[in-house]
Design a protein around this nucleic acid. Structure first.
Lengths: 210, 210
DNA sequence: GTCTATATACGGATAGAC
DNA sequence: GTCTATCCGTATATAGAC
């Protein structure tokens, strides 16, 4: 309505169009099953332009993968390395952030994990997960809670696995649930929103001393 | 040492050699990234014999997938549909069976799930998961426990997700953990064996009324 | 920058000798 | 049943006109 034009949704540069389409197709089908033709069709651009802008399919893939890794782990890193919040708080923030993120981008985890299985070395070196996970303030804090007798003494990796499993795994199995369980998209999302409140409580129940 | 010869590990028919190699390679790389040449090299047989015995790569894949699905879900089905065991018992059996299964075959879940994401319809019709999950005796039993006030009233799907997440997800993320966390195979397996005892207790803590 | 046409490589599958 | 050699479709990438 204003005289200054609003950017319409087709108002992307060719390069952006290709990247957006590549993200969608790579996330859905993985590197090997994706054809450059799929990306050109998804984006509406000419096939040759993909190589003009990105040199090769593999190069384009690496760009998408790097951005996906960063997008996925930055929330974790910021939640885990905040030195002002309590352990309980960190968990709440993490669960909230990730369920929101995954409702918007449900294909990211299976994309990362299935590519990771083939290429481990190169991909993982792109993101310093040691820093995000094992050297995080969350880990230190967990250990100090154990020492103080506040929580039951187990390897903090178990809590990481439980958190990741409870948050991420439902999204990974959702194609199966929808196809066979007959669970529809909005039912699924409703369940996931319920989990935002429940997972932190469950984790508390698991780690508290009896 | 006996006069009757023991079957040596190379004493497989050509058909078996191909299937065994195909299982390994498909599980590790998925359908699209697997070349028939990879399978022939892994098995040591001639490339042309793959088509002689199995007609096509796709046909061979379908055989492997069907067997993998059956192998993965039969334990679940038998544990969930045993009408004699308690809910607590079913969970213990399930956790035990699956962690053993996954330590032996850690690639099965990511294989099934990543193929599922591309082909949902055909694959899933091969196994009646509705029967295994949603119509299982486990589900009915869960509902009756809720009615009796023994456990907190939530959608049983949440428990399914938590179980699956706690059991299966660590194996899916293990390539990442090993590569970056610097966690070695035997450390990982030790953690998984710890979880055999812990997961049932955690699930109890989650579902019990406060 | 964008298009059409094409070069080139690769992978699944088969023909045909043994 | 097993091998070698090869066919042929498909997919990535590029050349070159506009």
């Amino acid at each position: 309505m204003s005289t200054k034009s609003i950017k319409s949704k087709n108002d992307f540069s060719t390069e952006e169009k290709i990247k957006n389409a590549a993200r969608i197709v790579f996330h859905k089908k993985g590197f090997a099953a994706t054809r450059t033709r799929d990306i050109s069709e998804e984006s509406g651009i000419n096939l040759a332009l993909l190589n003009y802008y990105f040199r090769s399919k593999e190069n384009l893939f690496n760009i998408i993968m790097l951005e996906s890794l960063q997008g996925f782990f930055q929330s974790m890193s910021s939640a885990f390395n905040d030195e002002t919040s309590s352990l309980e708080n960190k968990i709440e923030i993490l669960v909230n952030n990730y369920i929101d993120l995954l409702i918007e981008n449900p294909d990211i985890p299976i994309f990362i994990l299935s590519e990771l299985r083939t290429n481990p070395k190169e991909l993982i070196s792109k993101i310093d997960i040691k820093k995000v996970l094992l050297k995080s303030y969350f880990f230190k804090q967990f250990q100090s809670y154990v020492k103080a007798g506040k929580i039951t003494p187990i390897h903090p990796m178990h809590i990481m696995m439980n958190l990741a499993g409870m948050i991420v795994f439902p999204f990974i199995m959702s194609p199966g649930l929808k196809e066979i369980g007959g669970i529809k998209q909005d039912e699924f999302n409703k369940l996931m929103l319920q989990r935002k409140a429940m997972i932190p409580k469950w984790i508390q129940a698991i780690i508290k001393v009896k």
